[in-house]
Design a protein around this nucleic acid. Structure first.
Lengths: 210, 210
DNA sequence: GGATAATTGTAAAAAAAATCACAAAATAAT
DNA sequence: ATTATTTTGTGATTTTTTTTACAATTATCC
């Protein structure tokens, strides 16, 4: 039985929540607690969890560690994945310095930038390459994911190179809406202006839900 | 007739696309073109556009400028909105320097950080305040949107302060999943690790669509 | 100017997702 | 030990969203 996309999305968020609660030393969580924290109904959560096979314990809820492992195995979070970053301007390097990719099972093994001079001055501990090397490096290193932090103009060209190299997923932080020329490559567009607009639209058309 | 949430989301993306095409000097777009660029079916686009009232011209598609204005008016993009940023570390300042908020009708009128010393050394041309001033400033300046670029620990506390001040929408870049204690406040969680995981899940469970 | 092609708008059908309702099971309380 | 409470799992129902199908309209080509 195929897992619906909205369910996948919620399970990802739930996974983050479980990590957080686990670090805080909590042991169990009920569908009610989860629903409240994630802003959805408890039925919805229980239904989502049926896609994982049997899980909870009636009366006392879900065991955090067990559930975490089940989601991990089911959605493939248990495997380390190689990723790269394209565009090493301020935003790119800032993200690189902050995020704990490695500890979350993502390994940034390459950085790309079209500005060759910049590559030399950066003090970053990952191998850096010029953009035209993208297809070769992606293929050689078997990189699965890419993070795009560059200005809109070059985004589509870079995307083609990434797809050419056999990338599997792209998180696009550039302000253009990218679409995949290859339907087996998934793209997630993250644009702050777009997020602001979406929120504006929601409270402009004010609809009563969360 | 209430506009469905997925439709709102697509209309926001479409709006970005229209801006892009308009800048390139293009005049019209067909539902087919739009669908391809956005990775959805043309029917879906036409259906979405019915929520705006009559729009396209049979035979030649949609006039980009007209459509842009219609979406703008309908979703409230025609009004300038005040926003603030909370957390002025590397990521925060990087976003602030890159993004063209003002030209897209968002006006960043305040920055907040808990580190008072940092506030003094930053050379940013927006007024800066310590975090405890959030509720007062939000209320006084009538700020509608907030961008959260801070580490997970403080995110929930800051969120409460923002809600307390009467914020309407929050874009959360911190690694914790925030949920709103007030259902009239909309929150959009944007976390790179989460995006990576979502994409991993998609290609792990490989489902055939875009 | 008539034929052909492109394109929209929408009613109806289908598919997908969320919600409900409640029995069954485990826990906690007395 | 018995009762009350909590909480899960799931079939049925409802709601929402997408897709289909096609008539109607406009543009384009010869």
């Amino acid at each position: 039985m195929a897992i619906p996309r909205p369910t996948i999305s919620r399970l990802c968020k739930l996974y983050s929540l479980l990590e957080e609660m686990n670090e805080r030393g909590q042991l169990t969580l009920s569908s009610n607690d989860i629903g409240k924290r994630l802003g959805v109904g408890s039925h919805n959560i229980r239904k989502d969890l049926t896609y994982l096979g049997e899980t909870g314990t009636t009366g006392s809820g879900y065991d955090i560690k067990t559930l975490k492992e089940q989601i991990s195995r089911c959605l493939g979070f248990d495997r380390k994945r190689k990723a790269c970053i394209v565009g090493l301007d301020k935003t790119g390097t800032a993200i690189l310095s902050n995020d704990m990719f490695f500890s979350k099972n993502f390994d940034i093994v390459a950085g790309f930038d079209s500005n060759i001079n910049r590559l030399e001055t950066l003090k970053i501990d990952i191998p850096l390459y010029p953009t035209y090397d993208i297809p070769v490096v992606i293929r050689r290193e078997r990189i699965e994911l890419a993070l795009l932090t560059l200005s809109g103009e070059t985004a589509q060209i870079v995307t083609e190179k990434l797809i050419d190299g056999g990338i599997k997923g792209i998180v696009n932080f550039s302000p253009v809406v990218l679409s995949s020329s290859d339907s087996s490559v998934y793209i997630s567009n993250v644009d702050i202006i777009n997020e602001f607009r979406f929120l504006s639209a929601l409270f402009t058309l004010d609809r009563g839900e969360a």
